[in-house]
């Protein structure tokens, strides 16, 4: 996470040094900063930035695609006369442990159409989620675990 902020900072410094604050210069600065950070990272003892950045980008792309897909599904359901939703409130056993992980996961769920996190249990082991298309409970739990939480945790850990 710090490596990413350092990279953004380097990109901003690059635009200052060039003296032109444009989108192209910002991208160029970010790429140059990326090279610098990956070379310098072993100095403070970690070597994960390249992999994490890549996974983060992959997650953002996947997430955008998922939002579009399920928005279209709900839109279709609203426009056509028959209502296909089979909602259910499931208790989802969290693998995310820290506050950051749980918050981010809940935010991702809230942005994905069709899932709405209602509350976290006081001992933080279970997240209660309202799911719109949940005829098969096990399939829903597996889908949440495999496609969203695991990918998110891979980026964070």
């Amino acid at each position: 996470m710090y490596a990413f902020f350092l990279n953004v900072l380097l990109a901003l410094i690059w635009t200052l040094a060039v003296g032109r604050f444009t989108f192209h210069q910002l991208v160029l600065g970010f790429l140059l900063g990326f090279v610098v950070v990956t070379i310098l990272e072993p100095l403070w003892g970690t070597n994960v930035y390249r992999r994490r950045l890549w996974r983060g980008l992959a997650f953002v792309a996947f997430f955008a695609w998922e939002i579009l897909l399920s928005s279209l599904r709900i839109a279709y359901d609203v426009v056509t006369p028959r209502l296909r939703a089979q909602p259910r409130i499931v208790a989802y056993p969290l693998r995310a442990r820290t506050d950051t992980e749980i918050t981010l996961f809940a935010n991702v769920l809230a942005l994905t159409p069709g899932t709405l996190p209602l509350d976290v249990s006081t001992d933080r082991r279970v997240l209660y989620v309202h799911v719109m298309y949940a005829q098969d409970k096990e399939a829903v739990l597996q889908e949440l675990e495999r496609s969203l939480e695991r990918r998110l945790l891979e980026v964070l850990r």
């Binding site: 909602p87 259910r88 409130i89 208790a91 209602l118 976290v120 006081t122 209660y128 409970k137």
Partner: peptide, 23 residues
Amino acid sequence: RPRVLEDELAGRYHPATHALGSD
């Protein structure tokens, strides 16, 4: 109350403190 097939949240809140149990 939600119109759902199954509501796993029902009855898990402590009525006065709003503490939420996991099972």
